[in-house]
Every structure is written in structure tokens, then in C-alpha cells.
């Protein structure tokens, strides 16, 4: 036992080995085992090991404190209601904007019909106006894609929280987020809209395409 405790590095390696051999071990149980070992060794340790053993004790205390803090966070609220509620709200935004956009487009189509029945500058003016409305309605696609990215981020956070709870001996989640089975190179090309400050505009793209000619 003294050989094992020669250094903090040796202790860390041993703990890592134990964790590897027993990945599902409850951290509380590990702490109990450490305490039991310390109890049996209390009359046998050398002075130089005292600080090392104190560090092990502190490690156990840290694990207990972390567990208490996670419990105080009421993680069940986050994963059970807050994140699902936030994603539902975002889905509702997409649905409402889609419905509103449909009404706008329908009205625009009516105006287009009116424009086609007219002649001269009024017809042209009306059609130019509907063109601008059609262009602007593209916002629904862009905002929809941005909201989808936010929902994916929330779901990733939810999965990480559940994994952390699981790692600290909390209730095992019923379903863990599985990574989407998309080939890496294809997935890397599906990023959705970029922030305006980071995006290429149409003239940048035209220049890039032109460089192939």
C-alpha cells in the first residue's frame, strides 16, 4: 500500500485504473472505500504521507459537494420542463411566422392578379411592390433555420446535463441523445445561415465561382 501511495501521480493513476475497470461505480461508494482504507491505515502511515492522504480526503469532500450542488440545481426541472418548454416556444415561433407569411403571400398573389389586369406604370409599380414583399418573405426560411440551430444547441445542452448527472451517480436518464448518423464530411457542410458578420455575400460567392473559370 505504501508503494502505491508514493506520489500523487501514482494515486491519480490508480484512481483512473479503478474508474476504467468499474465505469459505473458510484462516486459515493468510492469515497466510502477511501475512508475505510484510511481508517485501517491511520496507525501505519508515515509523516510524509499525511498531506497526500489529506488531498484524498479533500477529493472525497469535493465529490460530495459537487453532488450536493447538482442536486440543488434541480436538474430535473432543466431537463424535464425548462428546455422542452423553450424548444416548444421556439417551434411555436416558427409555426406562427409560417402562418403569417402564408397570409402575406396569399395577399401578395391577389395583388399580382390585380397588377396583371392593369396596364402602364401603375401595374409596374404594383408588381415591383409585390416582388419586394416576396423577397422579404424569405425571412421565414432564414429565421426558421436559425431557430432550428438554437433548438439543436438546447438539446445538446440537455444531453450534457443528463450525462453529468449520470456521471455523478444521479438517476440514469431514460434516453441519452445519440449523435445523428451523418457522414462527417456531409455534416460539416450543413451549417445553416451564418451571422451577417461571418457570411459571404452574393458578390463574394460570384467572385469565388468566377475563379474556377
Amino acid at each position: 500500500m505504501h508503494d502505491i501511495l508514493k506520489s500523487a501521480g501514482g494515486l491519480a493513476a490508480s484512481l483512473a485504473q479503478i474508474r476504467k475497470r468499474y465505469p459505473d461505480a458510484d462516486p459515493e461508494m468510492v469515497a466510502e472505500v477511501v475512508h475505510a482504507v484510511l481508517d485501517t491505515m491511520q496507525h501505519d502511515v508515515l509523516e510524509k504521507h499525511v498531506s497526500l492522504l489529506a488531498a484524498v480526503q479533500a477529493l472525497g469532500d469535493t465529490i460530495s459537494a459537487a453532488k450536493a450542488e447538482i442536486a440543488a440545481l434541480r436538474v430535473d426541472d432543466i431537463t424535464g420542463s425548462q428546455i422542452p418548454s423553450a424548444t416548444d416556444e421556439l417551434d411555436a415561433i416558427v409555426a406562427h411566422t409560417a402562418a403569417a407569411t402564408d397570409v402575406i403571400l396569399e395577399t401578395c398573389e391577389t395583388l399580382d392578379k390585380v397588377a396583371s389586369a392593369l396596364d402602364g406604370p401603375l401595374a409596374e409599380q404594383l408588381q415591383n411592390a409585390t416582388t419586394h414583399i416576396y423577397e422579404a418573405c424569405g425571412f421565414q426560411d432564414i429565421t426558421g433555420q436559425r431557430i432550428t440551430k438554437v433548438v439543436a444547441t438546447l438539446q445538446a445542452i440537455e444531453a450534457r446535463v443528463m450525462q453529468m448527472v449520470n456521471a455523478f451517480g444521479g438517476p440514469r436518464p431514460a434516453v441519452l441523445m445519440a449523435p445523428v448518423a451523418v457522414p462527417l464530411d456531409a455534416a460539416a457542410l450543413l451549417n445553416g445561415p451564418q451571422l451577417p458578420s461571418q457570411a459571404m455575400d452574393q458578390s463574394d460567392i460570384d467572385r469565388l465561382l468566377g475563379s474556377f473559370d
Binding site: I142, Q145, L189, N191, G192, M200, L209
Partner: peptide
């Protein structure tokens, strides 16, 4: 909405006629 350089290059290499 994919506006990264790698997207445009990949599309061009795949034979896209133009990119908006």
C-alpha cells in the same frame, strides 16, 4: 443559406451551374 467557402467550392466541384 450555406454561405461558407467550402460549400461553394464543394458545389462547384460537384458541377453546380450557379449558386445563390
Amino acid at each position: 443559406a450555406e454561405s461558407k467557402v467550402e460549400n461553394v467550392v464543394t458545389a462547384k466541384q460537384a458541377g453546380v451551374s450557379n449558386y445563390i
